[in-house]
Design a protein around this nucleic acid. Structure first.
Lengths: 110, 110
DNA sequence: CCCCATACCTAGTTCAGCAAGGCGTAGCAG
DNA sequence: CTGCTACGCCTTGCTGAACTAGGTATGGGG
């Protein structure tokens, strides 16, 4: 991801969540995540595209070639129903885990 | 870790934090983390011991053989000064990251 | 005496993420 | 037209954390 790879497995969640709205292409997903996290989360392309393929392979995403506003060729991803319920479950799991970690690290992080 | 490996890299933080109080041996560290997280975080031994050795190798922990209350042989770990400052930095980083993820996933996780 | 919980360890595998490349195209400056 | 930059997609090779699945040894209880 960025910095030095905290959070393995979280990328999937981030992608799924980012695609909850309208379908987006990979490049835009990366940008959204970065902007949506105020620059804290930077998704490397070498992590992003394989992740997209992984999620598609698992049936959590569907891809379709299309065109961007600026007329460029791009592959647009949409979340499947399975992807949606997966996101819901994993999202709750994530919250539980991060809460548990926070509970051990200390309420404020210090 | 448990369930299906969310949170790569977080184990180090958990260990360091658990050792902030008194020195503990590996087995006890694992138990503490599990109990301190209400059973949510389960540290596999195959992850725990290598992590301990890693942290010792990096100079963040120091180890010493001793005896438990029940008279058993055990290796007790203590956090070094370097480990302490490492924990502080990484802990803040963790909070920032997890906050950023939470910001994208949604304020409540759903 | 045997089993279980304690307490330590390792070899082998898996797999996410990173680094570092490559490909093609649209738009703009010169 | 040339060159540069941003867009947009991809892959190969590597690292390294965590898991699986074992193994060792010992003390106490049935």
């Amino acid at each position: 991801m960025s910095g030095s790879d905290l959070f393995t497995g979280t990328l999937d969640l981030l992608i799924l969540r980012t695609l909850q709205g309208d379908p987006l292409h990979g490049y835009a997903i990366g940008r959204r995540i970065r902007e949506g996290s105020a620059g804290i989360l930077t998704v490397e392309e070498g992590a992003l595209y394989p992740a997209l393929h992984r999620l598609e392979g698992r049936g959590l995403l569907e891809a379709e070639w299309g065109k961007t506003d600026t007329g460029r060729r791009a592959k647009f991803y949409r979340v499947t129903d399975e992807g949606r319920s997966h996101l819901e479950l994993e999202s709750e799991r994530w919250t539980a885990f991060s809460g548990a970690v926070q509970a051990i690290l200390g309420p404020k992080g210090g």
